[in-house]
């Protein structure tokens, strides 16, 4: 089964570079930048695609700078079917 796909956004200007998120990430997708932010801290960045959106990094972040997204598969809900009889085309309209 394919992994859940996730993403994180880091507010780099508020990051204090404590590295705790790096350690908390089970997929090793977070690392510290080579440059510093306005406050002079090395900040956390996402370096790999393997994020599963598990929220571990955000849970341990003392400065609440990480927002986590997760792609979820959702079954489309059909709300109408339009049939054009003359041209024999059927179009489904999903919500």
């Amino acid at each position: 089964m394919a992994k859940v796909k996730g993403d994180i956004k880091i507010d780099i200007e508020k990051c204090k570079g404590c590295v705790i998120c790096v350690e908390a990430c089970p997929e090793d997708v977070i690392a510290m930048s080579n440059e510093v932010n306005q406050k002079g801290y090395l900040f956390a960045v996402k370096i790999e695609d393997g994020c599963t959106g598990c929220t571990n990094c955000a849970l341990v972040c003392p400065d609440a700078v990480i927002t986590v997204y997760r792609e979820v598969k959702q079954k489309k809900e059909q709300i109408a079917v339009i049939t054009n009889v003359t041209e024999n085309i059927t179009v489904s309209v999903d919500k």
Partner: peptide, 28 residues
Amino acid sequence: VETLDRIETKVFEKTKSLLDTEMHYCPG
């Protein structure tokens, strides 16, 4: 015509009552 869609949903963000003021605490 697909029956499955991939939607990106926010699963974690800073809650409202934690104000935007930057905290003075040391890193970590």
